[in-house]
Amino acid sequence: MPRKDVNLKLKPFEVAAAFDDPHWARLFPPILSVKQASALLQVPCNTIYDWSSRGLLRGCSRRVGKYLRIFRDRLVERIFNEGLIT
């Protein structure tokens, strides 16, 4: 049976509006650590590293030395608009 949510297609202003509240903006700044991204998506940190190593976060993450940094808005758009094939 086809999934009903495949065409969710959040708009950039909808993603930004989710973080307008100062509380959420403080918890999840525009550039996230792996720990923050895992908390945002409610998945283990190892899942974020796994997705990154398999190229599923290409376009929304970057290595900074030994650290992985993730662009919050692009991550949310990727998850909700495109999904991740795991």
Rank of each mutant, 00 (worst) to 15 (best):
M1K: 00
P2C: 02
K4Y: 02
K4H: 02
D5K: 15
D5C: 06
V6Y: 11
V6K: 12
N7K: 09
N7L: 10
N7G: 12
L8S: 15
L8W: 10
L8H: 12
K9N: 15
K9R: 15
K9F: 12
K9W: 15
K11Y: 13
P12K: 11
P12N: 09
F13S: 12
F13D: 02
E14F: 03
V15P: 00
V15Y: 00
V15L: 02
A17E: 05
A17F: 10
F19S: 04
F19M: 05
F19N: 07
F19W: 08
D20S: 03
D20N: 06
D20R: 11
D21G: 12
P22T: 13
P22W: 14
H23A: 14
W24F: 15
W24L: 14
W24I: 08
W24K: 14
W24P: 04
A25M: 06
R26D: 11
R26S: 06
L27S: 10
L27F: 08
F28T: 05
F28Q: 04
P30F: 06
P30Q: 10
P30G: 09
I31V: 05
I31D: 10
L32E: 10
V34K: 08
V34C: 09
Q36H: 06
Q36G: 01
Q36P: 08
A37F: 00
A37D: 02
S38G: 08
S38A: 15
S38V: 14
L40V: 00
L40D: 00
Q42L: 15
Q42I: 10
V43W: 05
V43Y: 01
P44M: 06
P44C: 01
C45P: 07
C45H: 09
C45I: 10
C45S: 10
N46I: 12
N46E: 15
T47E: 01
T47V: 07
I48T: 04
I48K: 01
I48L: 05
I48V: 13
Y49D: 05
D50K: 13
W51F: 08
W51D: 08
S52L: 14
R54F: 10
R54S: 15
G55V: 13
G55M: 07
G55T: 11
L56D: 04
L56K: 13
L56C: 11
L56G: 01
L56F: 12
L57G: 11
R58F: 15
C60S: 08
R62V: 09
R63D: 12
R63Y: 09
V64W: 09
V64R: 11
K66Y: 04
L68I: 06
R69D: 04
R69V: 12
F71G: 00
F71Q: 00
F71L: 14
F71V: 06
F71A: 05
R72E: 02
R72S: 01
D73Q: 03
R74Y: 07
R74P: 04
L75Y: 01
L75H: 01
L75F: 09
V76T: 01
V76M: 04
V76G: 03
E77I: 14
R78E: 07
R78C: 03
R78D: 02
I79F: 13
E82G: 08
E82K: 03
G83C: 13
G83E: 07
L84W: 08
L84R: 10
